[in-house]
Design a protein around this nucleic acid. Structure first.
Lengths: 307, 307
DNA sequence: TTGAAAGCGCTAACAC
DNA sequence: GTGTTAGCGCTTTCAA
């Protein structure tokens, strides 16, 4: 930077102000400095900038699962455009997750935290809040809303025996949504799975071991839903004749295989989360609503067997 | 840090040396300082550290497509474990890609660059090399090898009319692999697609518009391969009776739907790439081989129609 | 083995 | 509108 200052015949402070768009520089000077900097291919040393200025121009993005590509891509694009670096943390499994929250390697390193598809426990949330930077989480509310839609659709078709498959580290309180809509909750019908097709297949195995099959399965993960579908079919069950399936993660994969799903505009959801975070960073509050989700009925759901 | 120094009754320099494992500190001092730092929940200010030390403890990870989750997850885990931050850059489409290489926002910000599933053009490669940090790219070689396996499998079953679907920004020279194995190359059978199921469906539409169908389709993307499969079937074509399909991206999705695919151990491939990069960072050269890929034959391929 | 001092490249506060 | 000065929190000489 001092090179640029010398070349432009101004002080380093002026270069700094000019390049950052700070007030207190004449238009002519700003233009000239900008041009010189460009010609010299000057790239700011962010470390020094952060050290002196206090801001870090970086946001940590936590995700449980890189599979939810659109959410992540949307957030990355929006952050990048706003001039923030994206520090990616993949909380792949319980162990990685625990290590992350134990060490919490974010202190003094980021201006904010975005938790995508993570579903923080209270303790984890507290740990992040202790960092003293804004934390924005996407997924939990979205998931609840999606679940409500799915349950509504199923009860409307006479389903009462609904199994819920949760992918990732998700707390149990989702059962409440079932209860709220008047459905019974059977412990053996609340299942956990990794977010993979194979996970979905295993879920079906567990279900088949039980007394009887539920008449419908809701899965938070599109891949799991597909696994459930494939495994059921391989076992000679008809979908939706014997079992209906709803995925809470609508992607074009769901569309292509004809899976009833909640479509969430995930890229837009990621961008919206960034808006909220940036507003918090500015000390404001973003009041806009996230993009709404909607249920798209396809061939994987039908009336309940006994209705 | 000076707090820790004061509390431990040593100088900041000693704290610095102790915490980083630098020589020149007695074991007793190191242990004590480490303990005090931990007790005080000291977190180093990376900015200051980088500024003073020259190293940035950060690696840029470029990816064309967050869909290849395992590759990314593998690289992220390995980098994190080695103490590096992961700066994620999603080169989503041609425009984002161009902007990235025009601005090249990495100067003075990272110690190295990892390009995952990107396939750099010569110009792009030169731009990165100009950054003066090690650059490691994964995908191109892997893809060529995978393609060789796929082509070998198909020609072994008598296929000669093979269409190639490239997902992402991939250069055309992959045709050479077909030529090298004695296959004819027809321009209308080299197709580009976005890495989505929908993209695969569109590819089939284009194929159906042509004079005749190829007897086999190779797709670099697992999702595209699935789209091809679904669309062909919806059109009344038999797979593999009419058309065989091979995916170069073997995931459990490929397994679940019975797709012949090249399984690449992507997570391990990502970790290996990090090994190579870290070695370069240490000024060494990693000579280990990347994990090998292998073809798994499933139901989506069979003998050629006319053989 | 340890400490003191200089300086990394910026920004912010204060002058002018 | 612009320059000067003083740090930001570390690492790295150089001395002790």
């Amino acid at each position: 930077m001092s090179d640029v200052a010398r070349a432009a015949g101004v002080s380093a402070a002026t270069v700094s102000r000019a390049l950052r768009g700070e007030p207190g520089v004449s238009d002519a000077t700003r233009r000239y400095v900008t041009e010189v900097a460009k010609r010299m291919r000057y790239a700011i040393a962010r470390d020094a900038s952060s050290l002196a200025g206090g801001r870090r121009y970086a946001v940590a993005v936590l995700t449980a699962d890189v599979g939810r590509g659109d959410l992540l891509a949307g957030a990355e694009g929006a952050l990048r455009q706003a001039g923030y670096d994206v520090l990616l943390y993949v909380l792949r499994d319980a162990e990685a997750r625990k290590r992350f929250f134990d060490e919490l390697p974010l202190a003094r390193r980021v201006d904010g935290v975005l938790a995508l598809a993570v579903n923080l426990t209270d303790a984890e949330d507290a740990a992040l809040t202790g960092l003293d930077v804004p934390v924005v989480a996407v997924w939990d509310d979205d998931l609840r809303e999606a679940l409500r839609l799915a349950v509504g659709h199923l009860t409307g078709s006479g389903h009462r025996d609904v199994a819920l498959v949760l992918a990732g580290d998700i707390d149990e309180s989702y059962d409440e949504v079932l209860v709220a809509q008047g459905l019974p909750v059977r412990p053996e019908w609340t299942l956990w799975s990794s977010s993979t097709v194979a996970g979905g297949e295993q879920v079906v195995d567990a279900l088949l071991d039980g007394e009887r099959l539920p008449s419908a399965v809701i899965s938070t993960s599109g891949e799991v839903a597909l696994g459930v579908f494939l495994r059921l079919r391989r076992d000679g069950r008809d979908v939706p004749g014997d079992v209906s399936i709803v995925s809470l993660e609508g992607t074009d994969l769901a569309r292509a295989v004809g899976m009833t799903a909640v479509e969430g505009a995930w890229r837009e959801r990621g961008e919206h989360a960034v808006e909220v975070l940036l507003a918090r960073l500015r000390g404001e509050q973003d009041e806009t609503e996230p993009p709404s989700v909607q249920l798209v009925v396809r061939g994987s759901t039908g009336p309940a067997r006994d209705s």
